[in-house]
Design a protein around this nucleic acid. Structure first.
Length: 639
RNA sequence: GCCGAUAUAGCUCAAUUGGCAGAGCAGUUGAAUCGUAAUCAUCAGGUUGGGGGUUCGAGUCCCCCUAUCGGCUCCA
């Protein structure tokens, strides 16, 4: 029969030939490295039997699809090793994830770190055995019978959930068989480098009412050098951990007296203030006004907003004069109250009302994580009140504002759109209208976005901004939420052109999201090496001997007049020692002051990033650093 | 909240089978007053996260609590 290759050329193969046979027709070498096939656009095993007229492409290890199949086979090898070592173990699911894979298992044995090495050893054996990975299919009844015989309770459930007509496929390697859609790579021998990383608990099917299984995380690569590189990246991420750097640089502290309630130390507070100052500048420029609303408000308000019914388990409540109050978990209701303090006209719109507001939410103790997940955080909130005809423009304004801010920090990002969740308020019609106006704005802006069905807030659909830091991890920060509930609940009105009352449209949005989380992300993004405009200490004076301290103090005041953050290291230590400490602290500029400087006109400047910069006058230095700060320059290189 | 692990000086970490709680850094005091990534000496620093138990004796073994770490769930 005749089949076609990706370049369109035809090739003759025997009836019943597989993808592998096709590869052999071309060359033995190609057959050896082809681990998957693509037949008429569908990814298949190399053992897949081709049919006349099929269009065939051969995939080597270098494609995304190959890596996925490779990791999937790796997961099977791990499961096989576990079954060999701990025979009673039941398998749940074993998918691939970014940079690796995991397998959820149910076992009498509680797995600990030391077991991972044992499993790795067994996996090495399986790889050495060069087991062929074979696919077979069974009719539904037989498939269920098949897994029942093997006591794989979770697999029974999985098969039962597959749609009636679906073919049920299994993959077999040596004595090991697993229910699996595939595709897989043809032999265990390809899995050259792998590492089991951690054990964790995970609910069966992610539902907390189900049994908790044990999950083993791992990663694998076709080459040892790639695994090495990946492990180095993990190390690098560990080095950047904001909790570690936050402690070293004295930015913030977490104490057991306030789990999830971070303390900001002087330097962290300085950083936070710089971020807020920048925020206020951009928002003033963009036509926002700023308000401040109370932390504690009466239950009646939360009933009006819907939080009392929908969010109570996350709110801290208290009694004041026998009445129920709650600490705000969100700023919106306060903002609505401010809107309602007077009668509004359509001529006032859009009203862009910002609030840097501290909110408190009771998060599960196990969810807390440094500054990334806390129980008290500061949202850089704003509500925009407007006419329906202004929605598109306003959303575009916000998207552009977010873009400007993120670019200032050197972040890449992507956008996601989330639609109506199951637990929500409002009518189908309102949701339809809200969702379509967000989509319209995004399309008008011609930005790409990913759709997250049913992941919106209970009061409206949202656009989320996901930051990508310099080592490729993503964090959700900014959001824009269209809110068609609050105007009704709070009975917001404006007088329209026609002299009648109407309901305004409200956008609820944040740029940083949580300033605390944003700081955590910044710390890891810059690895503590903040650009000068963000650095809590921007200049450090290093007197050579005690007699130079007085001159340093004079210079310090000069710099402070320019709003620079300056310190003097006046300890009786060597210059080398003080420079070392300032470098480790990541202070952008050091000024060494000895007899030469006191007597001469010029100063000896050292840059954290570029080393010694040579001599310059104080005015030259001020000029340079002030410009650098004003321009919010990212990295200090030359000068 | 759930599964698992961990908790020793301000920080990073030692302490054999249960047998005198220790080091480096930071800090104090003193000497030295030094020119671009660690000067020398000195002193001090602890109810071993908290509570209970076993034991002649507990940092070490057992139980409870708290916090933290890796995840799940949730989320900015």
């Amino acid at each position: 029969m005749e089949v076609y290759l990706k370049d369109g050329s035809a090739i003759q193969v025997e009836d019943g030939a597989t993808v592998y046979d096709v590869a052999c027709e071309i060359s033995k070498g190609l057959a050896r490295v082809s681990i998957l096939g693509e037949v008429n656009g569908e990814i298949v095993d190399v053992s897949y039997e081709v049919e006349p007229g099929d269009k065939i492409n051969l995939l080597k290890m270098d494609t995304e699809e190959s890596m996925d199949a490779f990791r999937h086979t790796s997961a099977h090898i791990m499961a096989q090793a576990i079954k060999r070592l701990y025979p009673g173990t039941k398998l749940a699911i074993g998918p691939t994830i970014d940079n690796g894979f995991y397998y959820d298992i149910d076992s009498e044995h509680t797995f600990v770190e030391e077991d991972l090495e044992k499993i790795e050893k067994e996996m090495k054996k399986i790889v050495k055995e060069k087991l062929e990975v074979e696919r077979f299919e069974l009719p539904r009844d037989e498939a269920i019978e098949f897994v029942k015989e093997r006591d794989e309770d979770y697999k029974i459930e999985l098969i039962q959930d597959l749609p009636e007509g679906e073919t049920i496929s299994f993959y077999k390697q040596g004595e090991f068989v697993d229910l699996c859609r595939g595709p897989h790579i043809p032999n265990t021998k390809f899995v050259k480098a792998f590492k089991l990383l951690s054990v964790a608990g995970a609910y069966w099917r992610g539902d907390e009412s189900n049994k908790m299984l044990q999950r083993i995380y791992a990663t694998s690569f076709p080459k040892a050098s790639l695994l090495e590189k990946h492990l180095e990246r993990l190390e690098e991420a560990k080095k950047r951990d904001h909790r570690k750097i936050g402690k070293e640089q004295e930015l913030f502290a977490l104490m057991k007296e306030g789990p999830g309630f971070p303390f900001f130390l002087p330097k962290g507070t300085q950083l936070k203030n710089t971020l807020m100052k920048y925020w206020r500048e951009v928002h003033e420029e963009a036509g926002y006004v700023e308000i401040e609303t109370p932390l504690i408000l009466n239950r009646k308000l939360w009933e009006t907003s819907g939080h009392w019914d929908h969010y109570q388990e996350n709110m801290y409540t208290l009694k004041i004069d026998e009445e129920d109050y709650a600490i705000k978990p969100m700023n919106c209701p306060g903002g609505m109250m401010v809107y309602n303090t007077k009668l509004r006209s359509y001529r006032d719109f859009p009203i862009r009302m910002g609030e840097i507001g501290r909110v408190h939410r009771h998060e599960l103790s196990g969810a807390l994580h440094g500054l990334m997940r806390v129980r008290a955080f500061t949202q850089d909130d704003a509500h925009i009140f407007m006419l329906p005809s202004q929605i598109k423009d306003e959303i575009m304004n916000v998207v552009n504002l977010v873009d400007e801010v993120y670019k200032t920090f050197g972040f890449k990002y992507h956008i996601e759109l989330s639609t109506r969740p199951e637990k929500s308020m409002g009518t189908d019609e309102e949701w339809e209208q809200a969702e379509s106006s967000l989509i319209a704005a995004l399309e008008e802006l011609e930005v790409e976005y990913k759709l997250n069905p049913a992941d919106g807030a209970f009061y409206g659909p949202k656009i989320d901004f996901h930051l990508e830091d310099c080592i490729g991890r993503t964090w959700q920060c900014g959001t824009i939420q269209l809110d068609m509930q609050l105007p009704q609940r709070f009975d917001l009105n404006y007088i329209g052109e026609d002299g009648n009352k109407h309901k305004p449209v409200v956008i609820h949005r944040v740029v940083y999201g949580s300033i605390e989380r944003f700081i955590g992300i910044l710390i890891e993004h810059f690895a503590g090496r903040f650009p000068t405009w963000l650095a809590p200490t921007q200049v450090k004076f290093i007197p050579v001997a005690d007699r130079h301290i007085g001159y340093c103090e004079k210079l310090k005041s000069t710099l402070e007049e320019k709003d620079l953050q300056v310190e003097i290291d006046g300890r009786s230590e060597g210059v080398g020692y003080k420079i070392r400490e300032a470098q480790l602290e990541q202070v952008p500029y050091m000024i060494i002051v000895g007899d030469d400087e006191v007597e001469g006109e010029k100063l000896a400047i050292r840059s954290r990033d570029a080393g010694e910069l040579g001599k310059q006058t104080i005015d030259e230095f001020i000029d340079h650093i002030v410009k650098e700060i004003e321009n919010k320059e990212m990295a200090v290189q030359d000068y």
